[in-house]
Design a protein around this nucleic acid. Structure first.
Length: 337
DNA sequence: GCTGCATGATGAG
DNA sequence: TCATCCTGCAGCA
């Protein structure tokens, strides 16, 4: 259940593993057999993210040069609620070092880049010392297999092959992405005002609009709850009633928070002075952590997400929760009045 | 061994 | 607003 920062990390990991390499592309589960056949044997020439969408470019092996001409096909993957990538490799390539111990998932489940000292745990070498990819486990929709590594995709909500024009159409429907340079909208200012203007055009609550990928791309339930807390904004307030300057601040804050998440591999929104581990009321609040999980304890990472009933870290009032458009909302009724 | 929930999105009604 | 997609895990027996 990744938010945008995780998908950006995935794009980086895939580029590091496979960029420029001809891949064997298959669908062990069978549901993506047609799409896999289109890409099989081609070179992966790029991997990028826009919000929660992952795009990988494939080009024929015999084609020279870079860029994105007509024969480039784009793999589009959206993980949705259940999707996950798992990786395995021969342990020798630097890319494996960079993404962590083989057979650890990133994208949805915990994994650690440095493998927790378990080097080679998943380095499947046969008797001849030759690396062999592990058999797919579970319903693997898509397998990308290179010379030194393999990536398996399970449970995505979307997995399809697009032309450049189709990819552009998908991106056109997405709002600016705080992690992309200039929000993907040319300049930081353009991206910020696109977000601010869009929110203020509607009386839909600002809480709902932050989850709308056409308003801002990559924000999920955690970043929504945390960004609104940090800005002191009531999530139930209609978008048009939130001052321009406050929304601009929310955008700027998300740029910092989400880029930090993409670097760190985990969402941390608490300021150091509020970063007090308190046991989280006994609840186990998990999140995508493929970075150093212990750098900030999970029960010190959030202000309000999954903390309903616990005292607000700032004012002590109990954190509130409510279902809004089918998703759980968390906020402090005092700090966000 | 079950059961219900989860950081998401879509399409029908 | 609801059902559905489809998977892993915590919590419970």
């Amino acid at each position: 259940m990744p938010e945008g920062h995780t998908v950006h990390r995935l794009a980086r990991a895939l580029a590091g593993l496979f960029d420029g390499e001809a891949l064997a592309v298959s669908s062990p589960q069978g549901r993506f057999a047609g799409g896999a056949a289109l890409l099989d044997g081609q070179r992966m020439v790029a991997a990028e993210a826009w919000g929660k969408q992952l795009f990988c470019a494939f080009a024929p092996v015999d084609r020279r040069g870079d860029g994105t001409p007509d024969d480039v096909r784009w793999l589009r993957v959206h993980l949705g609620l259940y999707g996950a990538w798992s990786f395995a490799g021969d342990g020798s390539a630097e890319v494996v070092h960079a993404i962590g111990a083989p057979r650890r998932r990133i994208g949805e489940r915990e994994s650690t880049p440095d493998g927790g000292g378990d080097a080679g745990a998943g380095a499947d070498a046969d008797a001849a010392g030759e690396w062999a990819p592990p058999a797919p486990r579970g319903a693997v929709r898509l397998r990308l297999l290179g010379a030194h590594a393999v990536a398996d995709l399970t449970g995505p909500t979307a997995c399809e092959v697009l032309t450049g024009a189709e990819k552009a159409a998908v991106e056109a429907r997405l709002g600016p992405d705080p992690i992309r340079d200039g929000g993907g909208r040319g300049s930081p200012d353009a991206a910020r005002s696109a977000f601010v203007d869009r929110v203020r055009r509607s009386r839909v609550t600002v809480g709902q609009q932050l989850m709308d990928q056409a308003v801002i791309a990559g924000v999920g339930n955690i970043y929504r709850a945390e960004a609104l807390f940090r800005a002191g904004v009531d999530p139930l307030r209609p978008g048009r009633d939130v001052p321009e300057a406050v929304l601009a601040q929310v955008w700027d804050d998300l740029v910092v928070l989400m880029r930090d998440g993409a670097e760190r591999g985990a969402i941390v929104t608490t300021r150091p002075e509020h970063r007090v581990a308190d046991g989280g009321g006994g609840r186990v609040t998990r999140q995508n952590t493929d970075g150093d999980v212990d750098a900030v304890p999970r029960d010190a990472s959030f202000y309000v997400y999954h903390r309903d009933g616990l005292p607000c870290r700032v004012c002590g009032a109990p954190v509130l929760t409510k279902e809004l458009a089918g998703r759980n909302l968390f906020w402090c009724g005092v700090c966000q009045a």
